[in-house]
Design a protein around this nucleic acid. Structure first.
Lengths: 229, 229
DNA sequence: CAGATAAGTGTACATAATATACTTATTGAT
DNA sequence: ATCAATAAGTATATTATGTACACTTATCTG
């Protein structure tokens, strides 16, 4: 019998914890919440939930991000499994996922419901359990990913300016980038379309909007070229 | 009560599957076994086991590698969690770990016991469940890691020749490397010590043995230099 | 119309990656 | 003893990439 082999093994709680990232005020922001129940009631926490037996762990993460943001158009990637015995009060294996969302699509009514808020990544409070470690691992992973894949655009609105895009990369890598070098590199890839319209909210001169052309990117990749910031 | 919040949630089986890698015949080898029980009895499988409630997932992986190789001096890193609903017959979340071992330390008596054998990574058969995917993800991860960390030495004996080291990197990256460029780069890092002794098993001239000096590497890293192949 | 502000632009230099061919040490066979 | 065979070992030139650096331009406001 199939079950015979498994029967005497332990079963554990399995959770997903989501590092939900948005871009706002020229900085990466992460959605965190005040935990409304014990254990660690009142502590700052990532958005999480338990994995049900009928859903994959990816589906669970997508569900959790949807529940807490109202957004289902997200970039989602697994950070890894966190499984120290004492990471929670009960024995819970948690699988970390980071999500990149367009913060403009955030359903703000949910912020009140869950006592959740966007906090700049440089100003995060200490989080409960191993959640701070999850954020640290995520930033590491994001830095490696963003260097070789155009995932940053998932954090922006469809139209964005080059100064905004540069701020995004500066926030991801936590260091300043020379704007001439940045523009040279990003424009040389030939995956952005310059629009006629300007954004004048942050300067008198205004900065031209650009658009990421996914089709062109896919085509270049197929030709063996590679994205690299 | 703490348990109240968790109580109505599903518990799942959690396993670890280990991609145990050795280096032999100038190629990466992976330890696989013929599965002795249902489901998928007789199929080729990675080395795995269930996570017990009293051990961390890292500990579980280390235990499994020890059980199947007799080696406890290993480099271990998590590949990620695999959680499709139908990845096994029962609902089992599996966490993949790859291990780099010195294949000379392998306890060969265990090979018979578990019907396990070392197979070249280029000649792996189709594995059961999602194990082939785990191997693919591992090779990817290993390629990125080996480029920036000297983890390859975990696969070699303490003394090794430069031609052997080069073969190792060629096997990891699955392409040929020019030996002049390779030697220039690896020696420039100044983390290898040349020994007086030669290995004459593969040529009449013989190749000098070298040794990896971890202390020197650690020192260089502390000074902000970085390893890069 | 002058001043303020951020957007936008080009070149020179340094570093790193890549391509390329001959010499040397040693053993085994004659 | 000499030669043939084999893999180990070695240096340089070229190209590509990354980095450093300062002035001009468009537009709004007062």
């Amino acid at each position: 019998m199939t079950e015979a082999f498994y029967n005497n093994k332990d079963k554990l709680y399995v959770a997903v914890d989501c590092i939900i990232m948005g871009f706002q005020d020229n900085e990466l922001n992460i959605l965190i919440a005040k935990r409304p129940f014990e254990p660690m009631k009142g502590g700052w926490s990532l958005m999480g939930g338990f994995v049900n037996s009928f859903e994959s762990i990816n589906e669970a993460a997508k569900r959790v991000v949807g529940e807490f943001t109202g957004i289902d158009d997200i970039y989602l990637e697994q950070v890894g499994a966190f499984g120290e015995v004492d990471r929670d009060l009960e024995r819970v294996i948690s699988i970390g996922y980071y999500a990149l969302v367009d913060i403009e699509k955030f359903d703000t009514s949910l912020a009140a419901k869950y006592d959740a808020r966007w906090v700049r990544i440089t100003q995060l409070p200490e989080l409960i359990f191993d959640h701070s470690l999850m954020v640290k691992d995520t930033l590491n992973l994001l830095q490696r990913r963003a260097a070789v894949k155009p995932i940053g655009f998932n954090l922006l609105q469809e139209k964005f300016t080059l100064p905004t895009l540069q701020s995004l990369y500066e926030s991801i890598y936590q260091n300043a980038i020379d704007k001439r070098n940045f523009r040279k590199k990003i424009l040389a890839m030939d995956i952005l379309e310059k629009l006629d319209e300007k954004d004048k909210t942050s300067s008198r001169k205004g900065a031209f909007y650009y658009r990421f052309i996914k089709e062109k990117y896919d085509q270049l990749i197929q030709q063996g070229l590679n994205f690299s910031i």
